[in-house]
Design a protein around this nucleic acid. Structure first.
Lengths: 268, 268
DNA sequence: ATTCTTGTTCCGAAATTCGGAATTGCATTC
DNA sequence: GAATGCAATTCCGAATTTCGGAACAAGAAT
């Protein structure tokens, strides 16, 4: 049994595994990655690398760069993502609000959204480009750790919450807890304080604070969050930050409600 | 020869073909598409659909929705795109400018960019959500038809231009021309008038106008465009539109140059 | 003209996928 | 609580595909 070829846990890369490896490489060096590069970087025979690349191209996931000597991402890929996320209108709507905050506080701010039982980043803005690497639109926020996720989940009905807690909850740092009881107590704390925190639970040195964005009908589907180095976020000016988030959050709620109404009208 | 199994023109879907079909379906109904749906919509045996879906999940391109009964797009996909496009800062920078135009004119506006010899949409905003379907970030604009592409290509050196013209140029409508000579004359016209047009060359009833965005150092890497129904765009108010685009384009040029400088500084 | 590098085609051996049939799991109904 | 219906999943032999070494073209550099 120990010599079984099919690993019991099934961590096999699957049929698309190597295609994805190549694709990720292409994404890392768009428009500048040549066949030889792929071959040597992934230790694949030239022939195999060639076949994989051509396969990606035929599938529309990659395409040959203009010179012909290199590859970059195909537009079918781009279209796929943009078709789903469709947070464009949300971005244009909330952009100015976010910008206002980051200008006064100089920290990364983002708006998350409840989408299909998960919390995902909808819009993200930062004063420093380098920070944006982590918080990018479409990224999922873990319910048991992220401030923005707690801020939303604290105001969902029991069914939604139970479903979210039934998912595997990741442990990322020594400060991460993933037992349901703890999460529930954390959410209770959010309801009492009116804001959520994430203190080194995702990255040792980073903290985040988030407030729920309560729509006019009382629903909470979004959260507004600010993140940065732990000691710079969780200091004596914390109350001020929360105030700022709440003020902007209220404005956002109105804008979002209006936006949704307009969108609905246009979709008939 | 006619009965040859390997088609000479090689329009085969490739090994990833069916995976992509499924993935596109998932993207169309994110979080709500069940195995049975895929099976019946693509006329695949349940077994096959199942295997394809699981393959996508294992590759990180799709994932099971929280309920477990449905699928949506995986975040590896999202991350791939956002890692490359990286037009986020560009979007936040140009967003307000674009919004200003669409508010006064009520037409779809977008910024395109020269990227690796191709013209791609960087930022796009529209008063009506439905229009956005076509002009989406990442989409490539054909050099021989799109106004935004002509506006940029008219100011490139001969090598870049030659390379672009060496690519296969698509014919999409009866108004599309794809011979190099015609394109060159069109570019000459752009240089004389200062703006580019696309009159039903991409979609019969649609027109677009575009102006180059000239950076402080004289380079043209971007174009600002407005698109809409032909008779609404190409009417007697055309000069005013061009003026508006030029004004905003000048403001954008400054913003872009500054943005690039800041980004460069942060990247050291 | 020649050499080197890079991309492409061929083809037999090996491993994979293919999809029908049977099975499990879950919710709804009687 | 048993029974029913539906959707998802596992099994498995047949068939198709991929795999990658070796030979082959196509430029670029010397």
């Amino acid at each position: 049994m120990t010599t079984d070829t099919t690993t019991t846990d099934d961590a096999s890369p699957g049929p698309l595994g190597r295609y994805m490896d190549v694709l990720e490489l292409v994404a890392a060096f768009p428009g500048a990655l040549t066949l030889g590069d792929v071959s040597s970087m992934l230790a694949l025979p030239k022939t195999t690398a060639h076949r994989l690349l051509k396969g990606l191209v035929k599938a529309g996931l990659a395409r040959e760069a203009v010179g012909g000597r290199a590859y970059d991402l195909g537009e079918r890929l781009t279209r796929l993502v943009h078709a789903t996320v469709d947070d464009d209108w949300l971005a244009t709507l909330t952009g100015p609000h976010l910008r206002q905050i980051i200008e006064s506080w100089g920290e990364t701010c983002y708006l998350t959204r409840l989408a299909g039982g998960r919390i995902v980043v909808a819009v993200s803005q930062s004063p420093d480009v380098r920070w944006r690497g982590y918080v990018q639109p479409g990224i999922e926020m873990p319910v048991n750790a992220a401030a923005s996720a707690k801020a939303i989940m604290a105001y969902q009905d029991d069914a939604t919450l139970a479903q979210a807690l039934a998912q595997p909850l990741p442990i990322v740092t020594a400060n991460t807890r993933n037992d349901a009881a703890w999460v529930e107590s954390e959410l209770q704390a959010v309801r009492e304080r009116g804001y959520a925190t994430c203190i080194g639970e995702i990255d040792e040195g980073l903290a985040a604070i988030a407030v729920p964005v309560t729509l006019p009908d009382g629903m909470v589907l979004h959260a507004l969050a600010m993140t940065g180095p732990l000691q710079r976020i969780m200091n004596e000016r914390l109350p001020e930050r929360i105030d700022a988030l709440n003020t902007t959050g209220a404005a956002l709620a109105k804008a979002l409600a209006l936006g949704a109404k307009i969108r609905e009208r246009g979709a008939n």
